[in-house]
Design a protein around this nucleic acid. Structure first.
Length: 272
DNA sequence: CTTTCAGCCTGGGCGC
DNA sequence: TGCGCCCAGGCTGAAA
């Protein structure tokens, strides 16, 4: 479900809620997520919560102001959510709770309907770090983008989804970024000239920044740790607007096409 | 090396 | 109300 802005939102809201909490135990309700190492987290304190790519990373230390010993990295994929909530009487499995971090009378629940989400435990940050560039980092520039693209003959929309080059962009923001940059999603990545690369780089930063400011996009089930939703769906220019008018050129030319079995939305008039 | 494509899962919404 | 089909904001690994 979530892309970079949604994961950033989750991490930011979760951090003040769970930092300083002491872990009693980890409960796993999904056989795919079983891991005997989770026992090691008992009695540890949560010391940090942050985003890495599309993952939410939670750091654990044996005591306050000690170095983190473990990092729990959660990838929410399509339908995953992290909810900080009071202990409930309900059966965890009924609500698709897959993993539960028990902290006193509250739980951090990893809820995931489709079970695509993954959870990994690591004892160093290096093992979690992505080789790919984060588009919100200062080193993401037109020059960097050009270098990353190289001679790739993939269509630019598909290229933007490649997590091994650039982390964090998913299906919604790829369409929105290319609309903002006035670049057709079907253009081959290697065919973009310097001006177009500049527009793609700038639009990437601008779109993601604005989405983060608005706490992400909510369609069906994106929620932060309080069960609150984002606002960016009100700012989407092309995504899910097939047949509607372009907000820039006013023509009824917002179209939908399939690329790699995923929907792409674009304006047939102003994206060249 | 690069690129494509089925598969992983479940549920909601639609037409019949 | 029920059934089958399509769709869903992601990623992996095998195949071409």
């Amino acid at each position: 479900m979530p892309e970079l802005p949604e994961v950033e939102t989750i991490a930011r809201k979760l951090a003040p809620q769970i930092i300083g909490k002491k872990v009693d135990q980890i409960l796993v309700f999904d056989s795919k997520l079983k891991n005997p190492k989770y026992k090691k987290l008992s009695a540890h304190l949560i010391t940090k919560v942050f985003r890495s790519g599309k993952q939410v990373v939670i750091a654990f230390a044996p005591k306050k102001s000690a170095e983190a010993e473990y990092y729990l990295s959660v990838h929410l994929r399509m339908t995953g959510r992290l909810l900080w909530q009071k202990k409930s009487q309900q059966d965890a499995r009924e609500k698709h709770v897959r993993l539960r971090v028990v902290c006193g009378n509250q739980n951090l629940d990893f809820v995931d309907v489709r079970r695509f989400g993954t959870v990994t435990l690591s004892d160093t940050l290096e093992k979690l770090e992505q080789k790919a560039l984060d588009p919100m980092s200062a080193s993401f520039t037109k020059t960097q983008l050009k270098e990353l693209i190289g001679k790739s003959k993939q269509e630019i929309k598909s290229w933007l989804l490649r997590q091994d080059r650039l982390v964090g962009i998913g299906n919604i923001y790829a369409s929105e970024i290319l609309f903002e940059a006035k670049v057709s999603p079907f253009r081959l990545a290697c065919s973009l000239n310097d001006k177009e690369l500049e527009r793609v780089a700038k639009s990437t930063k601008a779109v993601l920044k604005k989405a983060i400011k608005n706490c992400g996009t909510t369609f069906s089930d994106f929620q932060d740790s309080n069960g609150e939703i984002g606002n960016y769906q009100n700012y989407l220019k092309v995504y899910q607007r097939e047949g509607e008018s372009c907000k820039r050129c006013k023509n009824k030319l917002i179209q939908r096409a399939a690329q790699q079995q995923r929907s792409t939305f674009y304006c047939a008039r102003c994206q060249l």
